[in-house]
């Protein structure tokens, strides 16, 4: 564990708490893509199958359980508790265009031909593009509640912080995980436009609005 990875994990935790807080205080999941949230459940479930076979640390196990549980809880909030505030008509990104190619990539690039390894690989690729339905929705509506942008910023910062972690691990342990690194760079790249608007507008106290 190094400071970058720890801060990345904290940022990931923070993003989930911000999202739950947003939904509960506004009593609405307006502006949140259900498709993105559903993909996250798939990502966590497929990646953390090793929960039953491998023990790394109490930290590692607790975080895995938290990510699975909280992502399922968010789906519950969106589909049951605050269902009327969820508008599927603006959440139109075709998720099959993400899952299909990611499944093919996982079959080609993995660390071993076993069900768990291929699913692990799938989860890494899927995570890298999971935010697309959300960003697509943002682009369509052209604006976002400030709290939603804080959620997205924390979520984007999480994988971005893993990049210095991988550089650090390469030099300190000789550890390289090419699948995670490649996907992580793509994932962070997808946030660049968002980060630009977030830093130049939201953090200057303005509303998140995209130019027409």
């Amino acid at each position: 564990m190094n400071i970058f990875r720890f801060l990345g994990d904290l940022s990931h935790l923070a993003s989930i708490f911000i999202l739950i807080h947003k939904i509960q205080t506004t009593r609405s999941c307006r502006g949140i893509s259900f498709k993105t949230q559903a993909v996250y459940v798939a990502v966590f479930v497929t990646r953390y199958l090793d929960l039953f076979t491998t023990f790394v640390s109490v930290y590692n196990t607790s975080m895995k359980i938290f990510f699975i549980a909280s992502s399922c809880y968010i789906l519950y909030l969106m589909k049951v508790r605050f269902r009327p505030t969820n508008d599927p008509s603006i959440d139109t990104f075709r998720v099959e265009y993400l899952v299909g190619p990611c499944a093919v990539l996982a079959l080609i690039f993995n660390y071993g031909y076993s069900v768990t390894e291929v699913l692990w690989s799938l989860s890494i690729f899927l995570e890298s593009v999971a935010i697309l339905p959300q960003l697509f929705m943002l682009q369509r509506t052209g604006e976002a509640e400030t709290i939603t942008t804080h959620y997205l910023a924390a979520l984007g910062a999480y994988r971005a912080l893993y990049i210095p972690n991988w550089i650090y691990r390469y030099f300190s342990e000789g550890y390289v995980d090419p699948i995670s690194v490649t996907a992580g760079l793509v994932q962070t790249g997808l946030y660049l436009d968002f980060f630009y608007v977030y830093f130049t507008k939201v953090l200057q106290g303005q509303k998140f609005e995209l130019p027409a």
Partner: peptide, 10 residues
């Protein structure tokens, strides 16, 4: 050393 069999990241 690669990530094979050593997945300690989240």
């Amino acid at each position: 050393e690669t990530a094979e069999g050593k997945k300690d990241e989240l």
